[in-house]
Design a protein around this nucleic acid. Sequence first.
DNA 1: GATGAATGAGGATTCATTCAT
DNA 2: TATGAATGAATCCTCATTCAT
Lengths: 219, 219, 219, 219
Amino acid sequence: MPKETFFNLPEEKRQRIIDLALAEFAENDYDAASISRIVAQAGIAKGSFYQYFENKEDLHAYLLTLGAEAKAQFLGSNPPDPAMGTFAYIRWLSQAGIEFELARPLLSQIGYRAIRSGALPPDMQAQAKSGAADFFRQLVQQGQSRGDIAPDIDPDLAAFLFNTVFSELGAYLLNRLQDEAGLADGRSLLETPEAERLFNQVLHILEAGMGTISPETSQ
Amino acid sequence: MPKETFFNLPEEKRQRIIDLALAEFAENDYDAASISRIVAQAGIAKGSFYQYFENKEDLHAYLLTLGAEAKAQFLGSNPPDPAMGTFAYIRWLSQAGIEFELARPLLSQIGYRAIRSGALPPDMQAQAKSGAADFFRQLVQQGQSRGDIAPDIDPDLAAFLFNTVFSELGAYLLNRLQDEAGLADGRSLLETPEAERLFNQVLHILEAGMGTISPETSQ
Amino acid sequence: MPKETFFNLPEEKRQRIIDLALAEFAENDYDAASISRIVAQAGIAKGSFYQYFENKEDLHAYLLTLGAEAKAQFLGSNPPDPAMGTFAYIRWLSQAGIEFELARPLLSQIGYRAIRSGALPPDMQAQAKSGAADFFRQLVQQGQSRGDIAPDIDPDLAAFLFNTVFSELGAYLLNRLQDEAGLADGRSLLETPEAERLFNQVLHILEAGMGTISPETSQ
Amino acid sequence: MPKETFFNLPEEKRQRIIDLALAEFAENDYDAASISRIVAQAGIAKGSFYQYFENKEDLHAYLLTLGAEAKAQFLGSNPPDPAMGTFAYIRWLSQAGIEFELARPLLSQIGYRAIRSGALPPDMQAQAKSGAADFFRQLVQQGQSRGDIAPDIDPDLAAFLFNTVFSELGAYLLNRLQDEAGLADGRSLLETPEAERLFNQVLHILEAGMGTISPETSQ
DNA sequence: GATGAATGAGGATTCATTCAT
DNA sequence: TATGAATGAATCCTCATTCAT
């Protein structure tokens, strides 16, 4: 965690440092990311950095918690109707996840990097790994008890599927729609009817595939 | 490409260098990977390395071609029955891909890293990026003309789904089965009935989801 | 240009670094000059060097500007009587040039090296190459219009002669007088009557040779 | 000196090695010249080089002796009429020198480099330094006894003048005439009337300047 | 609290030279 | 005699971190 001195900084300066650090860690691997570049761009002294943060890893961990908090807040800010069905909930959740990815691409990128590298601080490792997974698993189990999802679907596997597909779908859509429609910022791209169509199709495929007609028996 | 001197090396020494380099580049980003560490572990002089390879990038590119060759050979070694249906073919292809990933995890890892970083040599870039995607897309279109896949499924999107799911599935299975069954080498893990069951389930979900009953009309 | 940090250094340390760098670049070609040797002799860490200078070339360019400034200041500090004749002016200029060369042999040496190698920063290249040459050419043309120099003398060729002879004369005198009189520092050597005699003789030879009696017609 | 093995080499191979070495040492300082590059271009093994030559310096010294021999032979091959006057002789000598420089630019270049660097093998140092100088000095003294050169001209200084001017004149002419007339090989450039004119002018200036009218008394 | 100079290990790469085959 | 692999010191440069001011 950053030292107190960091939080005593004027808002604007603190934000500038964070933004530059985000850019650096989003573009480079942990090892390749350079504190020197950050402080140079931020216009602060090398020594100052070490009065704000314990060390390089401290900064990195902080950015990750920022990401986690931002995502939590993002999800919490427009909560779904608690009475909706399982797939409606998954739809909401997935869409929110992709929206977050497009709204805060740097934060997302850093998170993905960290997960891939497997070098997360142990607590976040658990959270990141199981976090989403656990959540999806509960969702699937609940869907099964409601009859929305076939009972012989492996909950953990289903969670893996949701997790995997929706964490890559954002980048895929971004890429594809930019190719088709020229440059545009991520947020607005997703409001396109075309994006809507593709997103729905993915959901429908998964929904139909996991539907009550068990694939085991349906063959 | 490595210099002649490298290929003149005694088999054992050459393999040792390759193995250590694989480990280094599998564990670290291109920038973070260290030639110094490799030569230290290989017990060769720094200068010797530069008699085998042009430079760091030369080594990296060589490892990538090794990966490409190994995978091509792997897929070619047990070719499928050419008369099989679309999904049967996809099943074979996916299973072979996952088997390769488990049999040669380091080679796979390096390939994934390279794709993500977007810094592949242009020829491989095309092959890696569109390669799999193009291939899946053709497969999907063929499936649609045969009536195996609903006609309103977006072929490119379907290709994305297959690509994404199956390139992550190997790691997922490995993780999960190791947790359940204790350490074991990747190859044998996949021959477990449990692995078979999970793999089939994923395939069935996708197959059923993309089946002829159009999701658009089924709602 | 050196970074600010370099100019913030204590005078003595800064000068020590400059002196050692001068010696290194005066004795060795650009490529052969070694930053490692400089920092070792200066007793500073290698990393420190790169907080003072951008890189090797930055240091080299700085030494060249030091030379240019020193020479300009040297020439400007005892300016000639503006009313003097052409050859008197050339005499003053040449003498000042040689004096500078003897007073600051290392600076001069580095400059000569750079001119020969042809690898000067473009601005200095122009200045150094044409600089002296252009200047001498103007002088010669002016001398011709005054009638001090034969009109059929090729101005550019005359400039070449002055340039060549006077840029080597310093080293020649230094060598010769040291052999005759034992070690002594350059500055005082030139105040010798013997140096005076030799210097005058060269000037007289060129003056008489370029005099109004055209060599073409005098033969 | 090269080892016997070198002289046992087939003529063609030996010459190829020499030519490439000449190019390398002509273009680079002694330190910057690279044995590795030479053997790579020559297509011989690194180890072979060390069976031909003691080491880098051995090769370098050999190239210098080749240059000395070539120049001696060049001058000796079209010897002047022994009865000619002092300046006619100097004219012949200078012209021959420049012709050699244009005919064998690499050999000349290496020689100049070596003289400048001051790092000649002691014997050649003496030869190179005094060599030409001694020769010119004798010539001047002879000219004085004949009455062609003013008696109070310092012979050593005159020798310096000839030496300096004529060792730079070749490069100057080459540069200038190429600028004026477009690319052309050195040899033919010197046969231009323009080259003739400029060369004569330099000679006339020095001749007139050193003529019997003593500069000391002419003031 | 802020500064920025100092540090030295580590990065990739090139080099001349040796020596076993 | 020819080879070419092996070597390790040297090159320039970047880095995260410390500490005196």
